[in-house]
Amino acid sequence: MDNFERHIRHNAGQFDGHKADKDKMWAKISEGLRQEKPKVIPLWKRPLFRVAASVLLLLGIASFFGLAVFNNSADKTQYASKELMEIDMYYKDLVSYQVQLVKNNQALSEENKAEFLSFMDELDTEYEVLKKEMQKNLDNEQVLEAIVGNYKKRIELIENLLHQLNESKKPNGDDYGYTL
């Protein structure tokens, strides 16, 4: 750096000879600062918010993993209680067993089987609707009763069918052609 440069740098203050219109400029600045709320960001810098954010984050992670772990058993947990789950299992097994019986029954005509199974399908759709309702409203006893009622109706239907089948077999084998 030569003398020319040194002299200017040492006297740089002499280049600041102008005065700003302080009040006019401040009015514009404070207007600019009002337009957007600048204090939103600093809030997050406060310790309390950091703690709150950490807690939220932990909860988030916990629920994420919780969901991931229990997701496999989601079909089961959607029922109101373990008791209901057991009832459901019991009826489901019973119904599928009896449906199988009907299907395998040689004494029934294909037409009768189809008719019977279409009844079953109707009850199946009703059951699906009830199951969805159950997910939305876990503590609804009416829904619970309706589900059980649905199962009972199926069993009743099957039992009637089997009963009539057996009855008709006894006197003679020709008389089983009537419908339900």
Binding site: D16, H18, K19, A20, K22, M25, W26, S30, L33, P42
Partner: peptide
């Protein structure tokens, strides 16, 4: 100023405005 005190903002502004204007 970081805490949002507007009188401090004005004070800081007053100290630097002429230099910045130049």
């Amino acid at each position: 100023c970081k805490a949002g005190n507007s009188s401090s903002q004005y004070e800081l502004y007053s100290r630097y405005v002429d230099a910045m204007y130049n």
